[in-house]
Each structure stands twice: as structure tokens, then as C-alpha cells.
Amino acid sequence: MAGLSLVAVPGVAQASGGKGGGKPVEGSGKGDMKGGVIYAETKIRTSGNGTKGTAKTGTLTAGDHNWTPPACWYEPAFSPKEIEAQVKAWRGLDLPFLSGIGDFVGDVLDSRYKDGKPYKDYNLDKQGKGMFWAAVKNPNRPDDPAANACNKQPFWVDEGEDSGEPLAVSPQVLAEYAYDEIEIPSTKVTLAPEGETKVNLPTWAWLDKARFKKLSVTATLPDTNLSATTTATPESLRIEPGTKDAETYPASGVCKIGKDGRIGEPYAKGNAKKTPPCGVKYLRSSGDGSYDLKATITWKVSWTSTTDPGQHPMPDGEFGGEQNVVVKEIQSVNR
């Protein structure tokens, strides 16, 4: 059955949701089989001021390159009736180049869920008293090889009981899933002078305070007590001029967020002789082209949950972008 992908019919289930139990949760009843393992669609829902669908340009990349949000987990997915319906749907499948494949898959699944190895009659006598938990692949990371770690067939968990599965959905899994859902605004910085700057002229740089504010996403497994909120707060801006023939302000190129919550300071008339708190000075003309200035914001990230209100740190996130800067050579500058 390696590589086989089959989609089953939808349905509604009632069973325990979340590690440690909780109120019944509706299942989608939808699943597909890959490599012989039945996977389910996640029921996790997200909301907040940073969720997908807002005016956005991208998502965070963890500064710790050894860390990524989970590629897979297990969550309550199918009721007994849904497992029965899936087996029937797969048994009815027949492909021209794989004659009899539907009966083969059906026999394998019947052996597990109907014939007592290990379940009897799809656990229909337990309808409403629990749920089959199934592997779920993170929809944001469908091709991540780490998803292969969730390779168990759906297994039964009585309502209110701990699943006993280390990779089961949990507040931390929800928080890490939410990390992937935070939408970050464009990091294009405002420059003064704008349009083009001059050689040896300190160029001021800053970010729109209204756009760069604290963002949060809450991930919830519906009808359960499982919910977690991940919050990202802008911390600093790193400027890379796009050429070695430049100096940054400060010299490190990293502009910290100020007490007023702003990164950088807008240029104001009369500040021509001042050193910008955040900016760049180009030492050579860009000629007929331009320099690719890269601006990267570092976001401080943490999470809380309904079961643990404490703040839990997560790896800092980064998001950046490039913009063209034209630099012209002149003899003198008046501002």
C-alpha cells in the first residue's frame, strides 16, 4: 500500500478531545492513507491579530535553526461509525492498474478494527464514549520528513483518559502550531531622504510604529479544554546595507526597540547634523543600479495556555525583506 492515497467519506463523531479528556469533540470523518497509515485532517482552529487572512507578507523563521514547529502529532479524529464508514469506502475502491486493491485494503483494516485484532466491530458499542486518535500532519509542513515519526494507525482512547502517546496534541503542540500561523507585516523601512540618497550622507531609517506591534495567535482544539496563545513582540531591527562600502547606525547594524515602542526615529527638519539612532551611510555610489538593503526584524516569542497560565519562552523569530536603495555621488549636500 506504499504511496497509496485514498479519501474517505465525511461524518460526525462524539468522543473525548485532548490529552487528559474533556468535552466531546466533533470529528471531520475525513482521512487519507499514505504508506499504509491512516492520517486525519487537523481540527485545530486559530484566531488572533496575527492570523492568516490579515494584511501580511510572511511568517516567522526560528532564529534557532535546530528548532521547527512539530511536523505531526496525534489528535482525536474518528468515531467508531466513522472508522466503519472509512473501511467500507476503501473496500469499494478499485483502480484499473490495481485490480482488487480496495478489497485488500478493506481486509487489512477489518482485521484491525472489526475482527478483534485489537478492536472488535469497530468499537461500535463505545460510540460516544471515546474516539480513535489518528496521526495528523502539520498542514504548514506537509513535506517535512519529520512527519514520518507519526506512523501509528488510529488507536482508541476512552473519553476522559490520557492517550499515553508522547506525540499527542497538547498545549505546547498548539502553541508551536500557532507559531507557524503568526503573520508578520513587511519589514520595508522608511528612509530619509527617500527615493535616493547620497554618498556620505547619513540616511535615517525607521519602522511604522502602528504596524510593528505585539502579535498573537490562539490555537484551539474545538470543544476541549486545550488552547494555547503564542505571542510575538518586535525586539530589534537588523540593517544590512547590501555593500561593504557602507556604515550603519549603530555600528552593529542592530537597532533596538525604544521605550516608546518604536524602532528607529523618523527624520525631522533640523536634524540634518544629528547622527540617526538607526540608519546607514553609503560610502560609494550605486552607479546605474542600486543596493539591496535588507531589513530583518527579530521577534521575541512566548506562549501561555488554558492549563498553564505561565509564560513559556519559544525560539526568537525572524522575518526580513529587501528594498532597493539608489545612491548618487555629489560634491556637497544641503538639508
Results as ranks from 00 to 15, higher is better:
residue 65 H to Q: 11
residue 159 E to I: 12
residue 130 G to E: 13
residue 279 G to L: 11
residue 32 D to F: 12
residue 150 C to V: 09
residue 111 S to G: 15
residue 215 L to S: 04
residue 172 Q to V: 11
residue 335 R to T: 13
residue 282 Y to C: 00
residue 138 N to F: 10
residue 99 S to G: 15
residue 114 K to A: 14
residue 256 K to C: 12
residue 44 I to R: 00
residue 261 G to W: 12
residue 158 D to E: 14
residue 205 A to W: 10
residue 313 P to F: 05
residue 62 A to R: 00
residue 284 R to V: 02
residue 139 P to T: 07
residue 141 R to F: 05
residue 189 V to F: 00
residue 119 Y to C: 06
residue 3 G to K: 11
residue 250 P to S: 08
residue 11 G to M: 01
residue 316 D to A: 15
residue 37 V to K: 04
residue 66 N to W: 09
residue 82 E to L: 01
residue 332 S to L: 15
residue 103 D to F: 06
residue 222 P to D: 08
residue 333 V to R: 07
residue 297 I to F: 00
residue 234 P to I: 06
residue 301 V to A: 04
residue 199 V to C: 06
residue 88 K to D: 13
residue 68 T to Q: 12
residue 120 K to F: 12
residue 225 N to H: 08
residue 15 A to V: 15
residue 265 E to P: 03
residue 271 N to F: 10
residue 146 A to D: 15
residue 159 E to H: 15
residue 91 R to A: 12
residue 333 V to H: 11
residue 88 K to S: 07
residue 18 G to D: 05
residue 165 E to L: 03
residue 88 K to F: 05
residue 78 F to E: 07
residue 224 T to N: 04
residue 125 D to I: 11
residue 93 L to F: 13
residue 9 V to C: 04
residue 295 A to Y: 06
residue 60 L to G: 04
residue 51 T to L: 02
residue 32 D to K: 14
residue 232 A to F: 04
residue 55 A to Q: 02
residue 223 D to V: 01
residue 259 K to G: 15
residue 60 L to R: 00
residue 217 V to G: 03
residue 75 E to W: 03
residue 216 S to G: 09
residue 94 D to S: 11
residue 131 M to K: 02
residue 96 P to W: 00
residue 48 G to N: 06
residue 131 M to D: 10
residue 312 H to E: 03
residue 225 N to P: 02
residue 118 P to V: 04
residue 277 P to Q: 14
residue 332 S to E: 09
residue 312 H to L: 03
residue 321 G to N: 13
residue 157 V to I: 12
residue 305 S to F: 07
residue 114 K to V: 09
residue 188 K to F: 00
residue 324 N to E: 15
residue 24 P to N: 10
residue 30 K to V: 10
residue 124 L to T: 09
residue 182 I to G: 00
residue 53 G to K: 06
residue 292 D to W: 05
residue 333 V to E: 09
residue 312 H to Q: 00
residue 136 V to H: 03
